[in-house]
Design a protein around this nucleic acid. Structure first.
Lengths: 116, 116
DNA sequence: CCCCCATACCTATCGCTTCTACATATCATC
DNA sequence: GATGATATGTAGAAGCGATAGGTATGGGGG
């Protein structure tokens, strides 16, 4: 319940998070944001002004598709799901992220850098 | 000598890398870029058009100070070194980075996320 | 001697993403 | 009927890294 410590997300990270959450199944935007915040133990906070443009971008790129449905609570919401292209994108972005983390770890001198 | 795989650096990462490299001792810009590339096993490539503006920004913020000296090969170069403020900044940015990596790891479902 | 490459610095501009701030609408609860 | 959570959206600002240029020097090969 503390305020999220990670106020700013590095560029490109949001796409990865969205894609990964949607790999668990279709979900609407608001729920995606909540899921990210909860799963990250309140460290990551996705702003609405970042979330919806990101979803639209991913949809335009063909990584997501969406349709309006009713939520559990009986409200209209836009449910997004991964397309085949989105799944591919998730894989490449995940690999890219891990490589980045490992590379930065080498610079920082993290012991994990040598592990493997 | 493969081409660097990480073409784009996420926003904010470059400062961290520069500060960390300079924590090892004063160095000029061109050498900083080389060091990052080598230490990361050719994964990270720092473009000159990113490097020099970043150095100037960090200098303006008081994280670095610079003066011209001769390199080993007898050429003029601008040697940067960490200020006290820069050292503080390095620590906070490092902590921030680790927290980010852990949080994203939780979303991705990395086993490391549970470790600790 | 000349050309090329690595070294070493710099800047203008673009592109992209995220953030801030605002606007809208429904539903449940008090 | 007011309030807060749910749910979506846009406009504008800000920041950073990348692209693409430019300058200058030194060393090695042809």
């Amino acid at each position: 319940m503390g305020a999220p410590a990670q106020t700013d997300l590095p560029q490109g990270t949001l796409d990865l998070l969205i894609l990964r959450v949607l790999a668990l199944g279709p979900m609407h935007g608001y729920a995606i944001a909540r899921r990210i915040q909860q799963t990250s133990r309140e460290v990551l906070a996705v702003q609405q002004g970042s979330l919806y443009p990101a979803l639209h971008r991913l949809e335009n790129k063909g990584a997501l598709s969406a349709d309006w449905k009713l939520t559990d609570t009986g409200r209209e919401a836009k449910f997004y799901r991964l397309t085949a292209r989105g799944r591919t994108r998730l894989e490449s972005e995940t690999a890219n992220w891990r490589q980045l983390v490992e590379a930065v770890g080498l610079i920082l001198g993290d012991p994990e850098g040598e592990r493997r």
